[in-house]
Amino acid sequence: MKVLIPIKRVPDTDQKIQVKPDGSGIVTDGLPFVINPFDAIAVEEALRIREKSTDTVEVLAASIGPEVCEQQLRTALAMGADNATLIQCDASLDPWNVACVLRAFAGRYQPDLILMGKQGVDDDLSQTGQMLAALLDWPQATFASKIEFLGSGLRVTRETDAGLEIVRVTLPAVVTADLRLNEPRYASMTSIMKARKKTIERITTTELGVTIEPRLQLLGLEAVPSRRKSVRVGSLDELLVKLRAEEKLL
């Protein structure tokens, strides 16, 4: 069985993110980049599937973007992915483009399962997995908090606003990982060393026969001014007055 894990390189959102003065993007100087946390959860799940399975399971991590994305692929390899491919592309991509590139790549690699983060923590769009499943005409199970193998398919528990929903999908399928699916591991020393030596395959979007035609245009980014303020109140009555009259919360 082959599991494909698309990996997105994203800024560490625990850091202070600043918008460029012209609103065209964020300031990336000195900003640490990480593997998208939901993608790390997908990697972990693939490793657990491999560990539990009696069949041979190959875990392939793939990232689309410039050379720097190699760092995040190395992280996936250090965690335990078998192989990694960098799909070279310098253009900025929207979810549609990413889905198109991944469809072409899946056509070559022929995975049984594409396991990916439910969304990138940079733009929070949460579209790529869904679009990819549609393009491939595969079943999809999004926001997975539990994945079980059942016969020739999967039983996936999904986290929805209304509660847990359990769906069955046949393979091949696209599954997107939610936060509670698992807790990703740290890499061991030996696997970090091994990952450093591994060859990362490279392929271009042109070689995959994909033309990048954005359907989404970023008009501008704007930082939301922080509204957090704290005031010390003298009494409960004063607090109630403030909440009612000034903040209109009660």
């Binding site: 850091q15 202070k16 990480v34 593997i35 992280t75 250090a78 740290y186 890499a187 020393m189 970090i192």
Partner: peptide, 24 residues
């Protein structure tokens, strides 16, 4: 380090060698 460097936001990656040694 940046002027507004915030130590409380420091984070170690999942493939940090010092962390691997610590766990080992």
């Amino acid at each position: 380090l940046p002027k507004d460097f915030d130590m409380s936001a420091m984070k170690a990656g999942r493939d940090n060698l010092n962390v691997a040694l610590l766990i080992h």
